[in-house]
Write a protein that binds this DNA or RNA. Structure first.
Lengths: 302, 302
DNA sequence: CACCATCCATATCTATACGATATGGCAGTG
DNA sequence: CACTGCCATATCGTATAGATATGGATGGTG
């Protein structure tokens, strides 16, 4: 059986005669009769009662016609749906986020904008560290991700620099370096932190930023004492509030207004900046993901 | 698009590669690739991501595969269902009954037997008079009917004699003709009723029996006085109970045990018998109706 | 009542396209 | 680096969908 048979069958059923149905189907009557016969032979029962003045459906034919009609409609709907998925108007996209990237307004605003453009795409967000992001991208488990620093670059994962922002120092309130600042925004040089206890995000998870900070300190003439490593950047700020040391975070993290901490501008910030990158599969990005990635790039360059 | 495309598509989707799918489909790989390409061009999006070591479904392809699978299954179910309807195992049958035919055990038992044989056929019963039965049969509104006497025989409606039973006289209790019968079954000759008021079922509805009774009376040497005409036979018996006259009914009506009436055997009953007929469409009887009609005939002759 | 119109079935033929065969290309593997 | 496995392209043969021609049945109509 082929869909042709169903289409022909329905045409005859609706017209009530072969001749007119053949006309509607832009074909001749004999092949139409023949195809219906073939169909009847295959399914094993008569669809029509042939009368000299036309045909009528048998009870079985009537039931079958209803189903065939429905099936053809459903097939069309199914094609349409799949087409929308292919065009990225429908479907699911999983986006990875490092906790620090999630704090940047660009990230949240971009995702919000995408939801407005593609309201029927389900957006799944997963908070992951940089290493997990690369891994899941390669495995196809997520289709895009925001992270700070591209590391562990492997075949098939691409990055796009979205923006760059300065790093800021996080000190506990009452820290000696804050004296004399008054109401003004406190400023601190990296060198001044040489004897502080540093709190950093764990290296395996975020090796890029970890390395950057160490390099900047080395360039400032000291090796920082790593008092504590934390899984996420907000945890580090919390520990600063608890007085366990100091840390360095991207400027956008200042939105996290933890009691007991003070954000300080770094003098000579060019030495230590915090980029924001989009990570995505290099080649076979598809569907809604492509739309999302294009939207991100638009918002950067446009 | 043809069902072939869906079948091929699902085979490739399940096997994960064209070569193996082609094998399973008992065809060669190139035409299979070609058919999938044709399908993709028609629906307007790619179903597979071609990889050197096989293929995987695109998100759109995945959605489409699920739907295609379901659609093919539903089509098969639909064919099966229609087939059962064609075989008369499933469906609906409308059966007409005159009220007097409905009283005969043959009628009720046959319908009960049919329901046991074809439990999935919905049996619709309609109480109709003989004229209505013929009309509805010709119009295809009912597919079989039980009635007493075939009349108004028209093209396309066939009859089968099922049985013949004697007519009995219905008298009100205390009627002079019942004197002397004692405990025995009372017997009455037609001639003895010459001066009684007759209650008959309306002629237009049941012209056969009406004519039979008149003919029998004439042969017995009198013209009956028709005191009242009723739409249904049970109404006639009720009127006898009310003392409005006498009536003649088929023997099986004695199951209707109305207080105030006495059923009397007719002497010389051969002159006036009540047949039971099956009426059915002559030519184009179909589906469950055929099974029903065959069952009826079996129960008569077998 | 015979003629005609209408519509379905059968028979034969043609052309499309489905599928087979042959071959080339690409990527991962021993 | 040759080899294997798999998909794509190209060409060819054949099955079959569809066209044409005709016959047959039935119901309406002059």
């Amino acid at each position: 059986m082929e869909l042709r048979h169903l289409r022909y069958f329905l045409a005859v059923a609706e017209e009530g005669q072969f001749t007119r149905a053949a006309e509607r189907l832009a074909m001749q009557q004999p092949p139409l009769s023949q195809q219906i016969r073939t169909l009847e032979e295959e399914i094993g029962f008569e669809l029509f009662v042939r009368m000299p003045r036309g045909v009528t459906l048998t009870p079985a034919g009537q039931a079958f016609a209803e189903d065939a009609q429905r099936l053809l409609q459903e097939l069309q709907q199914s094609v349409d749906r799949a087409n929308r998925i292919a065009r990225g108007e429908l479907g699911t996209i999983s986006i990875g986020l490092t906790s620090s990237a999630a704090f940047h307004p660009f990230t949240t605003e971009t995702i919000r904008a995408f939801r407005a453009v593609c309201p029927e795409v389900a957006v799944e967000l997963a908070e992951l560290n940089a290493a997990e992001i690369i891994e899941r991208l390669a495995a196809g488990q997520i289709q895009a991700a925001f992270l700070r620093k591209p590391v562990d670059v492997r075949e098939g994962v691409a990055f796009a620099l979205l923006l760059d922002e300065p790093m800021v120092v996080v000190l506990p309130v009452g820290h000696p370096l804050l004296k004399g600042a008054g109401k003004k925004r406190p400023q601190v040089s990296l060198k001044a932190l040489a004897h502080e206890d540093f709190i950093l995000v764990r290296r395996p998870g975020a090796p890029g930023m970890y390395a950057d900070i160490l390099a900047a300190c080395r360039q400032a003439g000291f090796v920082p004492r790593i008092a504590r490593e934390v899984p996420r950047m907000v945890s580090g700020i919390n520990l600063v509030a608890a007085g366990l040391g100091v840390t360095l975070v991207p400027a956008s993290m200042q939105r996290y207004d933890q009691v007991g901490t003070v954000y300080c501008t770094l003098t000579n910030p060019a030495k230590l900046s915090a980029p924001l990158h989009l990570a995505y599969p290099a080649g076979l990005r598809n569907s809604a993901a492509t739309r999302f990635i294009e939207l991100v790039k638009e918002r950067v360059h446009g």
